[in-house]
Structure formats: C-alpha cells, structure tokens
Design a protein around this nucleic acid. Structure first.
Length: 106
DNA sequence: AAGGTGACTAACA
DNA sequence: ATGTTAGCCACCT
C-alpha cells in the first residue's frame, strides 16, 4: 500500500458537499508532513480514478490548484454545484468551519 | 536509481 | 495584511 493509494482512497471518502485540506489527507494517509505530495497525487491521478479532487483545498480554505487542465474556476464551479459557498471576492475562499471535513479532529 | 519538482505548511520579516 | 524562506517527502522521469 503506497502513500499514493492511501491518498486516493481517503479522497474518495470525503463526503459530498464537504471539503478537507491537503494536510489532513496527508495525515490520514500516514505522512502528516507530505501535504504537498497529496497535490501531486491528485494532479496525476484525478482523471484516472475519477477522484473528487475539488474537495481538497489548503489549510486556510483557499483554492491553490495549479493545473492547466483543471483551473481554479472549474474547481469553484464543482464546489458550488455541491452546495459549497465560495467567496469569489476573497481569492476563492471556502469556510472550513462550515464545510470542512476533519474526521481525525472531530 | 538519482535528481528535479511542487494542487503544502510554518516561520520570519 | 503581503511577500519571502526553509523544510518537507513521495511523486515522476
């Protein structure tokens, strides 16, 4: 079981209408300091595994995606389609207190 | 197999 | 509040 496989499984467990952070996924996958790797995994595997990659954002609630094929605007659209409020006037910020999914801390 | 990369995060300033 | 720096570590080639 590789880190990558764990990331994929955990991402698939994020409930519809909720979001979590790269750091949280990394921690659940067993490497709390490998948050940046979570992003790499999603970048390479999101299409192949049809992952809900849009539900993973950074710890401050901001969308920091950097993938030409999946721009931030697309991620915002996908999140809003799930009923998640995105503050477009504040760098695409999501309220983690309201929409965050943190199984290990709650 | 070794090295470059970066969808992160915590410190600093 | 913004901008830079360092540490991180598994991804890919």
């Amino acid at each position: 079981m590789t880190f990558q496989q764990r990331v994929i499984e955990i991402t698939q467990q994020i409930p519809y209408g909720k979001v979590t952070t790269y750091g949280t996924v990394a921690a659940l996958a067993g490497s709390p300091r490998a948050a940046i790797i979570v992003g790499q995994v999603l970048r390479y595997q999101s299409q192949l595994h049809q992952l809900p990659w849009q539900r993973v954002i950074n710890k401050d609630g901001y969308i920091t995606i950097n993938n030409p094929h999946f721009p931030a605007e697309m991620q915002v659209a996908l999140l809003e389609a799930e009923g998640i409020t995105v503050e477009k006037k504040q760098l695409f910020k999501v309220d983690l207190k309201k929409f965050g999914w943190f199984p290990s801390s709650g």
